[in-house]
Design a protein around this nucleic acid. Structure first.
Lengths: 229, 229
DNA sequence: CTAAGCCAGATTGTCGACAAAACAAGAGAT
DNA sequence: ATCTCTTGTTTTGTCGACAATCTGGCTTAG
């Protein structure tokens, strides 16, 4: 069999749904039916249920009693809270990092920014968005605090939902020039400047939002996850 | 019947265990058996299991596959991460708050500090500890960001475990004078000073730790939760 | 023609039973 | 006496079935 059993089964399902939400394939507000998922992944309903519970705790899906799970649909207020929280967390991370990057870490980040620039060059927006988000994750990883990393992961994914719902169409959301400037400040060891730059960078993203819109799409779940039945 | 059905059953169980851990009644590392809990609370095992999963996600208990749940026992490294994360979060909260407290909020916080002082006066240490922790929660509530509040809640509870395991005995952990100074800076609108004071305050707690100890106690779960059977 | 009530189908919530894994105690050999 | 293998017990993991609840369409009275 080609299907390896590495990684517990529900972690796999969790990651798939998580990724689908982060990649904005599952639109906010979309209902996630247990039985449907059960058929798609070919597992028992209890497993799906457990995964939903985890996703709910992470704030990615909302579970209403007797009404089931749906993809988290942020209100404007929640959107603002998410942005504010993220700015706080990333400020903390950047402060921890200022002046403490070793040679390898600098190289890693510089390479990453170069990859962003390349994706930007060839107009590969999905890749660009992915890399942009990943840059912030890399920073958190280098900072070496697994708790802050976990918090940030959650916020970034939820922010992706916010952007999907509220962004004014047609603009890329994360410029590699800004990443580059942050990196410069970090290398220079100027924590305050790095923090300010990061804050400004995140504020720029927030400014591209239009906090008065609704959105609804239909999605073929079976196709998306590659159903086996 | 006096037992009202308000609040879903598992929320109640969750809160009880959470409180027991926060109050340091359940020592870190203690094994939590599903069937034992089932008998104590008089509910089905599935329910206990669900609650454990939530507690695990919040980082309060550790679940090892095929080995069950036990109260989170922080390693020195994890302890440091928790403290660092908390300093970051609280710094963010304090910065949000500086110069934005209205009259009622100032009064609320002042009263709270007064209550801390009173508890300190009469050597009521458990109450003192409780109030000290609550002060930080109050700040987060006033800041009005429910996400940061949730993060902080988790960190404070986990920190209680850290303190239980690693604190050098015989010293109170949170002085109301320091709280008072932070409040002054907040009212003065000096965000940087407030942040610095809060950081120092939290560092003081951290300094009282001795990161090379083990601890183990036995606890009668039935008595603690008031078993019904 | 509208609106309230009701019935059928679908969906979620809960539980108990069974299977698999870990743990502890005891027997046997070195 | 100690180490190891075996075996029985305890504990966790998983699943399927049943009960409760909700949704949407239909009927019927005003």
């Amino acid at each position: 069999m080609a299907r390896a059993d590495e990684g517990s089964t529900d972690d796999l399902i969790y990651e798939k749904i998580h990724a689908a939400i982060a990649a904005q394939d599952l639109p906010p507000g979309m209902r996630l039916r247990e039985d449907e998922m059960r058929q798609i992944f070919g597992v028992s309903r209890a497993r799906i249920r457990k995964v939903f519970a985890r996703l709910a705790y992470a704030g990615l899906v909302t579970i209403e009693p007797n009404k089931g799970a749906s993809v988290f649909q942020p209100t404007p207020r929640e959107a603002r809270e998410i942005f504010a929280a993220r700015r706080g967390i990333e400020g903390t991370i950047v402060r921890l990092l200022a002046g403490r990057l070793d040679r390898d870490q600098r190289q890693l980040l510089a390479d990453h920014i170069a990859a962003e620039a390349a994706a930007d060059e060839r107009r590969d927006w999905p890749e660009m968005v992915r890399l942009s988000g990943e840059f912030h994750i890399r920073l958190a990883e280098i900072a070496g605090n697994s708790i802050l990393l976990r918090f940030l992961r959650e916020l970034i994914t939820r922010e992706a939902l916010v952007i999907l719902v509220y962004e004014k169409p047609g603009k890329p959301s994360c410029s590699h020039q800004e990443h580059s400037r942050v990196l410069d400040a970090l290398i220079a060891g100027d924590g305050d400047r790095a923090t300010a730059l990061m804050d400004e960078h995140l504020a720029n993203i927030e400014d591209r939002l239009d906090l008065d819109r609704e959105s609804r799409k239909e999605v073929d779940l079976g196709k998306l996850f590659g159903a086996r039945r």
